[in-house]
Amino acid sequence: MNKVLEVKNLNFTYDSQEGKQTIKNVSFSVNEGEYVTLIGHNGSGKSTLAKLLAYLLEPQSGEIYINGVLENEKNIRKIRQSIGVVFQNPDNQFIGSTVESDIAFGLENRAIPREKMIELVNKYANLVGMEKYLNKSPEELSGGQKQRVAIAGILALGLKVVIFDEATAMLDPEGVEDIKDLILEMRKENPELTFISITHDIEEAYLSDRVIILNDGEIFLEGKPEDVFEDEKKILSIGLDIPFVLKLKNKIALKGINVPKDVRTIDGLSEFLCGRLKQKI
């Protein structure tokens, strides 16, 4: 597998918080096309790590390689062409005055010719389902719609790695579901795209390829979701919860039915149980 992102011994401290290190010696790598979720309680350094990965903050020590390129001031153009971030607040990342001009903002920055730009704007507006709103201004849109525009704006850049920094945290439940579906669709559409999702949503983490749990700026656990969440006590000890499906599976296991590890959704679980019932009959 091709390593698209490599983090080596990353350290970071905010100027305002002297003595308290926000990121402590973090190392990990992400493969191309992988869907990684970063979870952790408030103040665990998740968002800081996202900003470091996209070189919006400069680490005190340690190295980040994006697509084989070392992240530093000199390579900033290359970094911007490989990695992008969708932030939490839909209002504060809507730069254009209309949906189309916002999607085009990043393309304008890259000096892409206008004809190509129109083509890309239409393509990605379609992909996120905002093609009917191209002329709308942000105050006419809901939070979920604005967030979809932000996603289109990032995807239109044709990046290698996209980071969602709690992109669903400020949305209503419907908006959250929309964005989750969009992520799945996007991954189907473009299997080479690497997703790093920073989230509070344990359920989302359970469905990803890999989970990295941060605690006080350090990597606490890392691995496949079914393995990471296995030790319930350990997860609960750092103030996180385990996914609902897993709880259900644990309860079912007490009854003597062992559900296989790769069943990770409610639908999958009910299918499995129905299958079991059929066998018995």
Binding site: K51, A54, L56, R77, R80, Q81, G84, V85, F87, N89, D91, N92, Q93, I95, E100, S101, A104, F105, G106, L107, E108, N109, R110, A111, I112, P113, R114, M117, I118, V121, A150, G153, I154, L157
Partner: peptide, 26 residues
């Protein structure tokens, strides 16, 4: 706080105030 977030978002999408830009709207 909005302006800080906005500048990060603009930065993340590769905005360079002195760089050459094309225009979507003509």
């Amino acid at each position: 706080s909005r302006s800080v977030e906005l500048s990060l978002a603009m930065d993340a999408r590769g905005y360079d105030p002195y760089g050459k830009r094309t225009s979507y709207k003509i």
